[in-house]
Design a protein around this nucleic acid. Sequence first.
DNA 1: ACAGTAACCTGTTTGC
DNA 2: TGCAAACAGGTTACTG
Length: 269
Amino acid sequence: MPELPEVETTRRGIAPHLLGQAIRSAVVRQSQLRWPVPELDRLLSGRVVKAVERRAKYILIRFAHGTLIVHLGMSGSLRVLPAGSPVRKHDHVDLLFADSCLRLHDPRRFGALLWAESDPLNHPRLRHLGPEPLSDDFDGAYLQAAAHGRRLPIKSLLMDGKVVVGVGNIYATEALFRAGIHPQRASQRISGQRLGHLANEVKTVLTYAIERGGTTLRDFVSESGQPGYFAQELFVYGRAGQPCKRCGTAIRTRQIGQRASAYCPNCQH
DNA sequence: ACAGTAACCTGTTTGC
DNA sequence: TGCAAACAGGTTACTG
């Protein structure tokens, strides 16, 4: 899926179209996503959107009587379209407003729609999540405490949502390059100073990617259908075999925690 | 508690 | 050219 910058780009894009608007009806064409989709038409008809927020990679669409929690999985996208736009394959869910439509498209169906009657942050799927990477709760001292005694590769630690949310394969890969840390290094064998550097690079790369509207990926388009512009600025992700932009050494990849992990064997230790 | 792996599902790319 | 294998942004659940 979209990682945090793509989710935040989506949230910012759809929010102004939804705020204060009443839902006329909802259509569920495919209810088998990651978990069964709730009966949205019954839950949402006539209800007004009060806020559109984000926690981790979940988008929270708040109403007076509860919150619709949206996760885009690996291949999901949310777009605001004119009412009556033709339905494509994998257009699973529509929320219909007076003259527009919020549409969930998700070929792989790893996405999810959940309903929370009370505080969505207490929903079982959100309750145990770690801090937001761009908050003050995530810093070098926090990362040092999280890494203490852990033999797990640092890349896997960064991608563990109980440690910190929103850091997926692309941005974990990029932050580790920028911090000069080998993705497979055991977490406990990295100095506090280097972990501090890493925490800062996570913030930097995510902040910059959000400014640029996310990374261009095969299936990702923002709510307006425009691709992001971060892809051309990636240092190592997706660049296996190509020269390192810093030293010229060929970028390598290896599997870490079942995910392809690109790194520069000269710049990262 | 921790670390590693399989699983969910479909589309696209790669390799023979 | 054709077909099958490998691979893709994420997260949960199971194993030892």
